[in-house]
Nucleic acid binder design. Structure first.
Length: 356
DNA sequence: ATTCCACGGGAATCGGTGGCAA
DNA sequence: TTGCCACCGATTCCCGTGGAAT
């Protein structure tokens, strides 16, 4: 039933962005000065995840680049540093890439040196920047303009330095979830491009759009999952019962991918919680210490201390794999989907369960 | 009121990497 | 080749905070 799987990829960019006409206009206008060789206006793009912030920025900049010889740089900020951001920008500019141990100040100088035409820098996941001063360095470059993408603009503005706040203040642009009709339109295009003819009815697409509350990413992944389930059940088109079951699969797939992307330490903590169902913080640490030596034996990594474990647990929560509730010594960690196990630890059931 | 304990921000530190100059 | 330096991500150390139990 799925004829073009790529259509459902997170990175797939449609030719037209439906129901984002005003947003595209606003961004395009902000880029206008570049056509005269001036710096573009900055825009702080915000909104909940999965509603197309990144797609909007990429789409509009692609269009700009086709219209004029204006360059842009796309930087994924999550988990990177100031130096990392500047490096990413330099990579997109002509000239040699700097050595990996080049001092930050030299990177900064190189960037100032090489930006001699208007440059638009998209900073995706800008809430993930650990250092508040990163943006100041960018904003200080004459012809460089920024498009930070974040979830909460007030939060974000509160954390950056004054100069950046002044530049972005009044230049916020928010995207909201789609309406049911709007998202159904979007899903219709994907179904048309990626599924066999007639696989899904308009009513079904509207139902999915409604069930995912207008979050495009979830809608698209749910549609894909529904088509897969229909295939497995031998249906020639998507049935309503396939839709009923598609959300769980879509969510589970995201969680599985999340877990896969994490390093070994996270897996250990996750499995300890999963096999217990739920654990108090104190017990969790106890068990970790009881099994750590054995589990890490023969690996190049070594067990980590409590403070680091807390950070890993934070990450597990961010990734929607475990939840925590309760304060202080009664804090409990609960696994969210017991069916999702860590492939890295499937052979260690004995070690993990012996020490009860 | 005091104690207990997990939390989480921030600084210091560690180990590995890769240029670069002697 | 060797020693040195800067970087960087990960980790640990230190410590103030605050809710719950005593």
């Amino acid at each position: 039933m799925i004829t073009q799987p790529r259509v459902f990829d997170d990175t797939h960019l449609p030719r037209r962005l439906l129901h984002r006409e005003q947003a595209v206009d606003t961004l395009a206008r902000a880029f206008d000065p570049t056509l005269r060789g001036d710096r573009a206006e900055d825009i702080l793009l915000y909104g909940p995840s999965g509603v197309g912030k990144t797609a909007l920025a990429r789409h509009t900049l692609d269009r700009l680049e086709r219209r004029a010889d204006v360059h842009h740089s796309y930087v994924e900020c999550l988990g990177t540093s100031t130096a990392g951001v500047i490096r990413a920008i330099l990579q997109d500019l002509p000239g040699p890439d700097p050595a990996s141990n080049t001092p930050l100040e030299d990177l900064d100088l190189a960037m100032r040196d090489r930006v001699d035409d208007p440059l638009v820098v998209v900073l995706d996941e800008a809430d993930g920047l650990p250092d508040a001063g990163t943006l100041s360095r960018l904003v200080d470059v004459t012809l460089l303009s920024v498009i930070p993408i974040c979830h909460d603009p007030d939060d974000w503005l509160a954390r950056v330095d004054d100069d950046v706040r002044q530049r972005l203040h009044g230049h916020e642009y928010g995207l909201d979830r789609y309406g049911v009709d709007e998202l159904a339109d979007i899903l219709e295009v994907r179904a048309h491009l990626g599924l066999a003819f007639g696989s899904a009815s308009r009513t079904q697409l509207e139902r999915i759009a409604d069930d995912v509350a207008g979050v495009a990413r979830n809608g698209i992944q749910s549609l894909r999952a529904a088509a897969e389930i229909a295939d497995e059940r031998g249906h020639s088109s998507i049935h309503d019962e396939d839709i009923a079951d598609c959300y769980e699969r879509a969510r589970r797939r995201i969680r599985e991918a999340n877990l896969q992307s994490l390093p070994f330490h996270h897996h250990v903590l996750y499995e300890l919680i999963r096999r217990a169902g739920e654990l108090e913080a104190g017990q969790l640490h106890e068990r970790y210490e009881a099994v750590a030596d054995e589990l890490y034996h023969g690996r190049d990594q070594t067990p980590i201390g409590q403070r680091s474990r807390r950070n890993k647990l934070d990450k597990l929560q961010e990734y929607d794999l475990v939840a925590a509730d309760g304060a202080n010594q009664h804090r409990r960690y609960v696994v969210i989907d017991e069916e999702i196990d860590s492939p890295l630890l499937t052979n260690t059931l004995d070690i993990l369960t012996h020490h009860q």
